[in-house]
Amino acid sequence: MVTFDFMLPYYGDVAMMQDAVRSVLAQTDPDFRLVVIDDGREPEVPGWFEQLGDERVHYTRNEHNLGITKNFQKCVRLSEADYVVIMGCDDLLHPHYLETVRALIEADPGIGMVQPGVEVIDGEGKVTSGLADNVKHWLYAPQVKGRRVMGGEELATSLLRGNWLYFPSISWRGEALRAVNFRDDYSVIQDLALVVDLLEAGERMVVDQTTTVFQYRRHAVSESSVQAFSGTRFAEAERYFHAVADRMDARGWRKAARAARIHHGSRFHAITMLPGALRRGQRDGVKVLARHAFTPGAR
């Protein structure tokens, strides 16, 4: 059995998905399996995978649309390898991603998570650095030179203050991932919830900044997207932060509990969304965003 699974939950742009697949197949380390779980209905996709003729690629299409969280959960269930990546269907790997991550794992056997070096690209594939990523880097991410192992309350506090991870780039220890999986009750903040669950289970993370090996695609928020400015995601975030703060208190992780209750990063994100909600006349969205941004203790 191969030691590494790339799981690709797919829905959306066909060309970007195909580029993501090609970036996996271009790895300098060939010891991997690519599993694509298609949650869409684009007619040309099954035939494209069939013509690839690569035995490392396993393609399946869901009988009906599962949605993001259910498809992520299916990716976890179908994974088999020692280490697993659940990459975005529009993200790209550098050719030496697997080679680099495998070396990090071998240097720290049994590590639960690996966050490798990431650069952000826009919808056209150009390297970019917008407000969200600058805030991540300068305000919330630990200033790591080289590599650093983090875990427990230290990492939980850091992430609950502001989630600086690039979830699709992370390599997960398969056994730990399959034991926890994604929670059913979150559809937006499920990535942060998964990491915190793993930290509570005793897993640690290697943060490596020595080499850039992953391209994370960040699309501009469209003014035509009603959901983006409705405040729905922040209502879910409020529910999560209140619940996890209580868990952190029960565990004795007081700094992490305080970080969850204040959740600086999520509140700042809500503030950046307020002007767009106001322009669109999203009155209910404005209320949710304002409450999330300015009254973090409200229930």
Rank of each mutant, 00 (worst) to 15 (best):
F6C: 12
L8G: 03
L8E: 06
Y10Q: 05
V14A: 14
M16F: 12
Q18H: 09
R22K: 13
S23A: 01
V24R: 00
T28I: 08
T28S: 14
D39N: 09
R41E: 13
V45R: 10
E50L: 13
D54T: 06
R56D: 00
Y59C: 01
N62F: 03
E63M: 14
N65G: 14
I68Q: 13
T69R: 13
T69K: 10
N71E: 00
F72I: 08
V85D: 04
V85Y: 05
M87G: 04
G88N: 10
D90E: 10
L92S: 09
H94W: 09
E99A: 12
V101F: 07
M113K: 10
V118Y: 00
T128Y: 02
T128M: 09
S129L: 14
S129R: 13
G130Q: 06
D133W: 11
L139C: 14
V144S: 02
V149W: 01
M150S: 05
G151K: 10
A156M: 13
N163T: 09
N163A: 08
P168W: 05
W172D: 09
G174L: 01
E175F: 07
A176S: 15
N181F: 04
V188D: 12
I189K: 11
I189Y: 14
L192S: 05
L194G: 05
V196R: 07
L198I: 03
L198F: 03
V207K: 11
T211E: 15
T211Q: 15
Q215R: 11
Q215C: 10
V221D: 15
S222C: 07
S224L: 13
S224C: 11
Q227S: 12
A228E: 10
A228Q: 08
A228K: 07
F229S: 05
R233S: 12
R233C: 06
A235Q: 13
A235K: 15
R239P: 04
H242F: 10
R247G: 08
R251S: 05
G252D: 03
G252F: 05
A256E: 04
A257D: 00
R258F: 13
A259P: 06
H263E: 06
H264E: 15
H264Q: 14
S266R: 09
R267A: 15
A270M: 02
M273K: 15
Q282L: 11
R283V: 15
V286C: 08
V286Y: 03
K287D: 12
K287F: 12
A290H: 08
R291T: 10
H292L: 05
F294L: 00
F294N: 00
F294A: 00
T295F: 15
